[in-house]
Amino acid sequence: MFEARVAQAEILKKILDSVRELVEQGNLDCSGTGISLQAMDSSHVSLVALLLKSEGFERYRCDRSINLGINMQSLGKIVKTAGNHDAITLSSEDKGDVLGLMFESTEQDKVSNYEIKLMDVDAEQLAIPVAEYSVCVRMPSAEFARITRDLSTIGDSVLISCTKDGVQFSTTGDTGSGSIVLRQSSSVDDEKKAVVIEVQEPISLSFATKFLVQFSKSAALNESVTLNLGDGVPLMVEYPMKEMGYVRFYLAPKLSN
């Protein structure tokens, strides 16, 4: 028996919104420690890794580990019908063929029940090695969204160059070019608005703009985002979710032929 209850539907809505455009279907791996999802986009350029820790749920029970193969679009559509403050309980029998969803309004005067058919998702599980990153940039997630959107009007790849002085995002396209530099915040009252740049070694890497734009749509998950860059490893973009876990996006770089 698997059962997980979140107090507020809002967080699940945000999580599903952040992954469902990149990932069509995936296996929710449910175990005693929580729920995780790992899935690549259809072109196998990026990978989403989601972790929802059991402590982040109001109630959590998972007697034995199970894989729930889910169409993310279908799940997203159903969860969207819940009120933001509704409690949501996900459930599945050990050998069940559906994922049950129960929404309860705060006044407990409305209860909605849905079932989604489970599917066989043939997803390769990839091992993500612990990487040594040369650069870690923390910045407001809204700023990251703005920058990627602005540069996407010009070019289909973005060069991210980082030194201890700042991080530069630049692009070139048929119509011209553009670049945006962010400097480390000198003093900020609000931690979440800060730009913090940690550099072991300066680095310059190119990435496909459209994926950065996709990732940056997760801004609702956290006011801050971290970009982790290293030579010879994919970019890792992380949106932490307080006690709940995280959504991480990995993106393979563009390499010189």
């Binding site: 690549m40 196998h44 350029v45 990026s46 563009k254 032929n257």
Partner: peptide, 14 residues
């Protein structure tokens, strides 16, 4: 001109 690498060339099957 740069080519797009695949994520599977960095992360192997577990």
């Amino acid at each position: 001109k740069k080519g797009q690498a695949s994520i599977t060339s960095f992360f192997k099957k577990s």
